[in-house]
Design a binder for these strands. Structure first.
Lengths: 160, 160
DNA sequence: CTCTTTTGGTTCAGTGCTGAAATATTTAGC
DNA sequence: GCTAAATATTTCAGCACTGAACCAAAAGAG
């Protein structure tokens, strides 16, 4: 199995480096803007968004973990913090006593509404408004190819 | 200045969400692969790469901070760790006694060489080989637009 | 030359995350 | 039913990073 490494060609190398750097700078930038706009880490903002779109503005801890594909312990910590800020409230789960529900409070919803416009400005300024409609379509197509691949079942080596 | 928020259109919304999720899953994936391949956090790998490409395999701390656009304190911590692993060595800067040089050791270079092939496989598998040549070109073009914008001088509000 | 300011790095305290262990509750086996 | 296995969540120890305070050397001002 001593397969020879297929190094990247010059074209591939250039594309990869540009893409890697661009996405890193972009996410850094958007994260900083969001932090300034919402006074919370971007990951917490995401949790609030999920809750705000859920029925009853309520979700199970494990659901939150799944949708953000992150570890349970992270959600636990995060909800603690958000509870301290009174943006989220914990409620016992009626049908499963092990479980907890995270409920977005009115304060939390208000905080989200206050931050959203600034977030949109940031996304427009650093991404959307920079691209032609065609480029945006291309970017979406490419993203979907990656998503299809990355959300596939098997871990890395599908066949055997 | 009560400008009305220009919310994203449906098309823009779809593209943005797909892109945001795809890049997050992709970087998560690549980072995990790299961690497994190189037995170090991806950010440390990046430092070794920079050093390996520098003349004398040597760089100033501040240079490293600039190129990775991160804070000095991060570099300080990171180089400590890499020094513990004997992959990097600190040397006093001859012409500026405040400064330090980080030098990549032979062990460090070997560690890099050992990890590189697996890293390339990962980048191919989860990105390059999924796209058509045209898509790859489009992705590079888009990335350059973003890079030009993000590396511009002024911070967000260019004029005054 | 001194005196102040700037620059290069490190140290400190605190934050968000992770993997592993611990706890409580539900489900499944018999 | 009663025990065994699985599941939902929290707690714990440790890591990478950040902003602020700090120290030492260099550069500038008079």
């Amino acid at each position: 199995m001593a397969s020879v490494t297929r190094w990247l060609t010059d074209d591939e190398q250039r594309a990869w480096r540009a893409f890697a750097l661009a996405t890193r700078l972009l996410t850094d930038r958007l994260d900083r803007d969001l932090l300034a706009a919402a006074d919370m880490p971007p990951t917490y903002y995401e949790l609030l968004v999920l809750l705000s779109e859920a029925p009853e503005r309520t979700m199970r801890m494990s659901e939150l973990a799944n949708w953000t594909n992150s570890k349970p312990s992270r959600i636990s910590h995060a909800i603690n913090k958000l509870e301290q800020k009174a943006w989220v409230r914990r409620e016992h789960c009626a049908d499963d006593r092990r479980g907890w529900l995270a409920v977005l409070t009115d304060d939390g919803f208000a905080a989200l509404q206050a931050a959203a416009p600034r977030h949109v400005v940031s996304v427009r300024e650093h991404l959307i408004d920079l691209l032609t409609p065609e480029q945006l379509r291309n970017l979406e197509d490419i993203s979907r190819v990656l998503l299809d691949h990355l959300t596939e079942p098997g871990p890395s080596s599908p066949s055997r």
